[in-house]
């Protein structure tokens, strides 16, 4: 009896919190991995319009982004105020789209290539002319899955 109680008394120190940092670090790494830092800084102003019939873009790696909008104040003097297309981190013209799509395509596994989606992030204030040219170019390069990026409508 005495032996038993003695052993118990010895083995009840404070709960070890030594593994707490490990747990927190695990959470931290999770968030660090999940966080997607925008890889291209925007040179055009993009304020997408609101819509209600939205679908979610599933796999990030299967999506390429095309930004269309008017140049921001920083680039206004150099590039004017008419709507421009931005691919990656630089201004581009419609003719650069096929190469851009091809560059993205080779990074994607072959069996997934049919599911590549182009996300058009278009400013609501842009006229349809440039959007139409880009759509035509996408059709010509056989990139038919397109997602018009939009914000959910707040009721």
């Amino acid at each position: 009896m005495s032996k038993f109680s003695k052993k118990r008394g010895k083995s009840t120190p404070a709960i070890s919190t030594a593994s707490l940092p490990d747990i927190i670090f695990m959470l931290l790494f999770f968030f660090m991995v999940v966080t997607v830092l925008r890889d291209s800084s925007l040179m055009v102003k993009v304020n997408t319009p609101q819509a209600s019939e939205l679908t979610k873009l599933e796999e990030k790696s299967l999506v390429n982004y095309l930004y269309i909008g008017r140049p921001t104040d920083q680039y206004k003097e150099q590039y004017g105020t008419s709507p421009r297309l931005q691919l990656g981190d630089k201004f581009a013209t419609v003719d650069d789209i096929p190469l851009f799509l091809e560059k993205h395509k080779i990074k994607v596994a072959e069996n997934k290539r049919a599911r590549i989606t182009s996300s058009l992030k278009v400013d609501g204030d842009v006229t349809m002319g440039i959007v139409q040219d880009i759509k035509t170019q996408l059709r010509k390069s056989n990139q038919l899955k397109v997602n018009y990026s939009a914000k959910p409508k707040n009721e």
């Binding site: 939205l54 996300s119 035509t136 397109v146």
Partner: peptide, 28 residues
């Protein structure tokens, strides 16, 4: 310390919701 870092990432992370109207364009 780990909590501090965790909270920093929690605050700075904006889980970007990429939503939009999906359209299938007709072939050219």
């Amino acid at each position: 310390i780990a909590f501090l870092l965790l909270i920093f990432f929690l605050v700075t992370t904006t889980i970007v919701q990429d939503k939009g109207i999906t359209v299938k364009l007709p072939p050219w």
